[in-house]
Design a protein around this nucleic acid. Structure first.
Lengths: 104, 104
DNA sequence: TCGGTAAATCACGATATTCCGATATAGTTG
DNA sequence: CAACTATATCGGAATATCGTGATTTACCGA
């Protein structure tokens, strides 16, 4: 994964500059800690409903939080039927980690 | 340096989630690239005026940018006479880098 | 002490973010 | 097809951030 641009870094920092979004990204490191779902979370990601329940925000807010994380490249979405599943983009997150270590 | 709390991380991400502030923190890695000043920048930090000039913002904005970075713990200020000098808190920045690598 | 300079703080309009309920869109099931 | 469920998007009110000029505070030198 190539190094993120300054613009991409800013976008990631903005997304992480919110306690709930930062927490969600942490939760997604352990998808199995969420309630069971039809398709295993380790494969397709965690269903939005479960993220919403743990974050204790409205459905609308949960959806927008995930859209923000997605625009920042931190997570990706897999839609299966009616369900949107979110999981971490580990390679991009690692690249950001490297950038923080090197260029910040 | 102990690990930053989630709250401290959020505060740092907020501060870095702005292109100019992110750039300033990068500039401060090379204090000698700024114009010469009475007290050497490598010792006390870079004078606000020089940061303001490079960022091309008003004096007020420059001062507030640095206050934001300071509140996030990313820089510290050394006042010498009428001049405020800013430099990176390398230990805290390193701790945040470690947190990003580990907990993000 | 006075005039000048540096920086912090204040006040404020402009803009963006936050979070929600309501609605729209899709898919699923009977 | 109709009712139901999951999610996305819209519209909006509350709040926060952004950037500025004006003011205040602090320090300096004559």
């Amino acid at each position: 994964m190539s190094d993120p641009t300054a613009e991409e870094l800013v976008s990631a920092f903005k997304a992480l500059g919110h306690p709930t979004r930062l927490a969600i990204l942490g939760w997604l490191k352990d998808p199995e800690s969420f309630p069971a779902q039809d398709r295993p979370a380790t494969e397709v990601g965690v269903c939005l409903k479960h993220i919403q329940a743990r974050a204790e925000v409205s459905q609308s807010t949960a959806s927008q939080f995930m859209a923000t994380l997605q625009r920042a490249g931190l997570v990706s979405c897999t839609r299966v039927g009616q369900f949107s599943h979110y999981r971490r983009n580990e390679d991009i997150i690692a690249a950001i980690g490297r950038s923080v270590a090197v260029s910040i």
